[in-house]
Simulated assay, not measured.
Amino acid sequence: MKKIISYSLILLATISLAACGGKTKSSENSTPPKQTEKSSQASTTTKENSTKSSTSASSSTKASSSSETKTSETQTAAQPQSNTPEKQAKAVLDELNSLFPNNTLPQSLLTSRTAEYLTAATTSTADQTNFRILYYAEDHPIAVNDLAVNNLQPIASFEKKSYGSAEEAAGAVGQIIDTGGNKVDLGYGITGYEQGAAGSTYLSWQEGNWSLVVRASNIGGEVAEPLAKEVVTYLEKAMLPAPQNLGQISLTASTSDSYQINTVVWQKGTTIYTIKHFDPLQAVKMAVSTNG
């Protein structure tokens, strides 16, 4: 039985807490140590405008053991139990920025429970050109790169990967431009194209160098159009990173606690950036927050 959970954004950049379906596959980083993930329920803490509609999702997917980032570092400092989620979020963000000083990291993401405490695990910081950060949200403070996260399930990830040429990087984006199927008015002068395949419906559209697609399961009775329109409306007032040269956003209308279900991938020369999040709209917001 599904349990409906409300979500809200945690804004890290302002000392508050703020993360595929489709037909594309996002690029993967160099193989990090294995991460054992543990299924968890989701709910949230908010600092967002109360006029924003809340997003809900149900916890239905159990995480599997796969080649995901696992911290190999011991706990650096005990987190005081008197710490607040806001203070913890700022501390985590500050530490990540100090670990990767030459990179612009996401400044906001959604946690998954009320009174949520953000933490993170990273691959080696020695390589500033190829790394991955996994983000977690728990009911108590945990230090960055604490071994305790090895048994937890991430809510989101941010990855940077470098390639030998711009052409190779462009291929890793896996951009899909699809203008077949039925036309759908997504608002703001944007036309989407919807068609079905293999039990799913795909709704695609273009915004600048970005290609976007929302997948909905026909079997589950899902509809792609509402999410597509929500993303289009949000992007009317928010700016995605400017890809050089390609960007691909692949979202799913399904609800899941797997952070890999929604992806945002973009190219800057020979570098590919990838964001993953269990919540589709928050994956987009997380990408927007990399603009600083």
Rank of each mutant, 00 (worst) to 15 (best):
K62N: 13
A63M: 10
A63I: 15
A63Y: 15
A63R: 13
S64V: 13
S64E: 12
S65Q: 12
S66W: 13
S66Q: 07
S67T: 15
E68V: 05
E68C: 03
T69M: 12
T69W: 04
K70F: 04
T71I: 09
T71W: 05
E73P: 01
E73N: 08
E73H: 11
T74N: 14
Q75N: 11
T76S: 14
T76F: 08
A78N: 05
A78S: 14
A78W: 07
A78M: 08
Q79H: 00
Q79C: 07
P80F: 07
Q81Y: 06
Q81M: 12
Q81E: 03
S82D: 01
S82K: 06
T84Q: 05
T84L: 04
T84W: 09
T84Y: 03
P85V: 11
P85E: 03
E86C: 03
K87A: 15
K87F: 05
Q88E: 01
A89P: 00
A89N: 01
A89C: 10
K90N: 12
K90A: 14
A91N: 03
A91Q: 05
V92W: 03
D94T: 15
D94P: 00
L96T: 06
L96E: 02
N97L: 07
N97K: 12
S98W: 01
L99Y: 08
F100K: 07
F100A: 07
N102C: 03
N102V: 08
N102L: 09
N102M: 03
N102S: 14
N103S: 14
T104N: 10
T104S: 12
P106E: 11
Q107V: 06
S108R: 10
L109K: 06
L109H: 04
L110R: 08
T111A: 13
S112D: 11
S112M: 09
S112L: 11
R113L: 11
T114G: 07
T114P: 00
A115T: 11
A115H: 04
E116F: 03
Y117L: 08
Y117I: 03
Y117R: 01
Y117M: 08
L118C: 01
T119A: 08
T119K: 00
T119L: 08
